[in-house]
Amino acid sequence: MDIQRFITAMEQVAPPELAEDYDAGKIGLVVEGKDEIGTVCCALDATERVVEAAVRAGADMLVVHHTPLWSPITAVRGPMSHLLRTILAARMNLYVMHTNFDRAEGGVNDVLASKLGLFATERMTVGLVGDCSLDVTEIVRRLPGGGIRVYGEIETIRRLALVGGGGFDPDLIREAAALGAEAFLSAELKHSVARASPIPCLEATHYALEAPAMEALSSRMGWHYIPDPPHVVVVL
């Protein structure tokens, strides 16, 4: 497939206009390679391990959720030098679908809601609220890559709000509570936000909340999925 046809197809899956303003210049084709796309790999992050696996698989395109190029680069050294050298030497394209894929139909939040068995869902400004019958143990069982931290008292949750990625915004939590949510699931919770929240907060990892959507996208498109869970060491 020609690279422009591939980009057009991806923009239908996750329209760029759905992205948050801070994603300007950080989504779409962020590293340009070959003009013809045959083999496509997909992962959550463009880590060195993922990039090397994609090169071994003969990928012409690697689709990820998080760009490795968050800030303007003024020097290319260390891990970034190795990462870019590997991508460019293979002439592999790198395509990013971030907050536009979070919000898209069938994107991060939709896949997460399906994985947790939510129904009668309503869209928030960002994220979803849906009916369910879940306790914390069941949520942990259904999410990949470890447990969650709970702030507040929770038994069975009948209505859950969720936002893939770091979505613990006070305004969003209040919006979720107004829609009847009994708990709020996301990542990167600040202590001050947890203390002020009108409903219990469930803090998972980015990987647990977002990797399922990238795996589902890969399966849907017939791509090769590269799992790369973070290595977490618990010291007691």
Rank of each mutant, 00 (worst) to 15 (best):
M1D: 01
E11W: 04
E11H: 14
V13F: 08
A14K: 12
P15A: 12
E17I: 08
L18S: 13
E20T: 08
D23F: 06
A24D: 15
A24P: 13
A24W: 13
G25Y: 09
K26G: 13
K26W: 12
I27K: 08
G28A: 07
V30P: 14
V31I: 15
K34L: 13
D35S: 15
D35L: 14
A43G: 12
A43L: 06
E48F: 07
V51N: 03
A53Q: 07
A54N: 05
A54C: 07
V55C: 10
R56H: 09
A57K: 09
G58L: 06
D60K: 01
L62R: 01
V63I: 15
H66V: 07
H66F: 12
T67C: 15
P68S: 10
P68A: 10
L69C: 11
W70R: 15
I73D: 06
M80D: 10
M80W: 03
S81N: 09
H82R: 14
L83M: 13
L84N: 06
L88W: 11
R91Q: 11
N93Q: 08
N93V: 05
L94K: 03
M97W: 02
H98K: 11
H98G: 14
T99N: 10
T99L: 08
D102P: 01
E105S: 11
G106D: 10
L118F: 02
F119Q: 06
A120S: 03
T121R: 08
T121H: 01
E122W: 00
R123H: 07
V126C: 11
G130R: 02
C132N: 00
S133N: 09
V136S: 01
R142V: 03
L143S: 05
L143V: 11
P144G: 04
G145C: 14
G145M: 15
G146F: 06
I154Y: 05
E155L: 03
E155S: 05
T156Q: 06
R158S: 10
R158D: 02
R158T: 03
L160N: 04
L160W: 00
A161Q: 01
G167P: 02
G167S: 09
I173L: 11
R174L: 14
L179H: 03
L179P: 00
A183Y: 02
K190N: 09
A196I: 05
A196T: 08
A196F: 12
P198L: 05
I199M: 11
E203R: 14
T205C: 13
H206K: 14
A208N: 08
A213G: 04
E215C: 10
G222L: 04
D228A: 09
D228W: 03
H231Q: 15
V232I: 15
V234R: 10
L236E: 14
